[in-house]
Write a protein that binds this DNA or RNA. Structure first.
Length: 430
RNA sequence: GCGAUCGUAGCUCAGUUGGUUAGAGCGCCGGUUUGUGGUACCGGAGGUCGGGGAUUCGAGCUCCCUCGGUCGCCCCA
């Protein structure tokens, strides 16, 4: 590589090969599952006015205060590359009159941007799948969303991941709990870690899931949200958990699970790898694979009417790390190898016929005949079809399967190929 | 933002206590051999050893800075 060549931006990735296939598998599975749950596909702009995020996430959150890619455009507006989906979707809901579709079940996926230190499973441009239900006050919305997340993970073949569930209560419950936590931790402030002393100011809920040994002695006796829940909030949470049980979604109560962003209310959840599982090993410190909750307060922060909503997002890269390597591209079903010379047009004829019939076919046309064969073999296909000059050996087409090779007649090819690939006789007439 | 660790050909890596023209395997290109066209061999191209500076007669090997990768903290998906 020349030192003249520009390098990729830090924290971005060029995904290729098995990783790219795993990425695609995650997105394709998500698309399939969201249709089962009848979530509508939406497409969103990658950037918004900065205030969309600043007002909804909270000015003091780390995301807003130091992780956003914000810039001034040529018209002088402050714009920001989306650091998450929810705020933009909420803005779109308000500005497009999507209220008429309420409750709106929406799904999308794409790149997000956050200026963070890159790490395993954490990038500056990363990708998420996202699902939201907007305009539904019912706890059943939470249940449906979580059932979808659970099924998605199952269909991705991801095991050893458990739903951790908590409630933050309604606005009043949450504030009362927060005040109690501040009071409780302030009394022992000197003994807390530096990080937690700061959290006491900015986000006291976060002290609860501190990993610092100095904080842990105080966590067990910290005030519990359950003691601050209003009757309504308690009933709501019970309806959610009852619904999950009925839907067959396994969950565990996680009293210390909180959300970093200001707009969350009631249900908060994360799917987290079980300790010691292969999934936990694969993800390193970035443990959450899918997270979300209810955000009844968000729409108002954007100047809209009070609108209940729930949603979740999952990092595609993290999910892709858990689905394992996928080599579907590397393994060709059938490779067509024309000898150099006058048979290449014939080979193209066969190839286009087979592709039009719906078969995935590779044609080797690069290099000399020997190279073509070597390359064909390396893809480990189910079959290699040699197209040769008339007069070569006994025929002009050979179909090879494994170590066995046989001469076949042209009119048998469709059937032979179909049989070897297990797709029945190929219809070339289309 | 903080800490640790790594950075040699396209890829995976060797490179002894600093010493002459930096190596291997794979891949790529060319050739020979083989042949129911999964072989073997020969040759070739490709590196200013991430970048910059310092020490030294001399640095891929030492020191400093810087840019990246990786892992952890913070935060979060």
């Amino acid at each position: 590589m020349s030192k003249n060549t520009p390098k990729a931006i830090r924290g971005t990735q060029d995904i290729f090969g098995a990783d790219a296939e795993a990425f695609a598998f995650v997105v394709e599975t998500f698309e399939r599952v969201r249709r089962l749950y009848r979530f509508r596909r939406i497409e969103m702009p990658v950037f918004e006015k900065t205030e969309v995020f600043a007002r909804s996430l909270g000015e003091t959150t780390d995301v807003v205060s130091k992780e956003m890619y914000s810039f001034e455009d040529r018209g002088g507006d402050s714009l920001t590359l989306r650091p998450e989906f929810t705020a933009g979707i909420a803005r779109a809901y308000l500005t497009n009159g999507w209220q008429q579709h309420a409750p709106l079940k929406a799904a999308t996926h794409g790149p997000l941007f956050r200026y963070e230190r890159p790490q395993k499973g954490r990038y500056r441009q990363f990708h998420q799948i996202d699902a939201e239900i907007i305009g539904a006050v019912e706890p059943q919305a939470d249940v449906e969303l979580l059932a979808m997340a659970d099924q998605l993970l199952k269909e991705l073949g991801i095991e050893g991941v458990t739903l951790h569930l908590n409630t933050l209560g309604d606005g009043t419950s949450r504030e009362a709990w927060r005040a109690a936590l501040i009071e409780y931790f302030s009394a022992v402030k000197d003994q807390l870690s530096e990080d937690s002393q700061q959290r006491l100011e900015k986000n006291p809920l976060r002290i609860l899931d501190s990993k610092d040994g100095r904080d842990k002695p105080f966590l067990a006796d910290a005030p519990k949200i359950d003691d601050f829940l209003s009757d309504e909030a308690r009933a709501f949470f019970k309806a959610v958990t009852d619904g999950l049980d009925a839907a067959g979604v396994k969950w565990v109560r996680a009293e210390a699970l909180v959300r970093g962003l200001d707009y969350y209310r009631h249900t908060a959840f994360e799917f987290i790898p079980d300790e010691g599982s292969a999934a936990a090993e694969a993800l390193g410190a970035q443990s959450t694979v899918l997270g979300g909750g209810r955000y009844d307060g968000l729409m108002e922060s954007l100047g809209g009417p009070a609108t209940p909503a729930v949603g979740w997002a999952a990092g595609i890269e993290r999910l892709a790390m858990l689905v394992g390597k996928r080599e579907i591209f590397d393994r060709a079903k059938l490779v067509i190898v024309p000898d150099t010379g006058n048979v290449e047009e014939l080979a193209w004829y066969y190839t286009s016929q087979l592709r039009a019939s719906g078969l995935s076919v590779e044609i080797a046309y690069s290099g000399k005949a020997k190279k073509r064969i070597d390359k064909a073999r390396r893809t480990d296909p189910d079959a290699i079809f040699f197209v040769r000059e008339r007069g070569h050996a006994e025929g002009n087409e050979y179909l090879r399967q494994g170590a066995h090779m046989s001469v076949i007649a042209m009119d048998e090819l469709a059937e032979k190929v179909g049989t070897i690939l297990g797709v029945g006789k190929i219809d070339w007439s289309r």
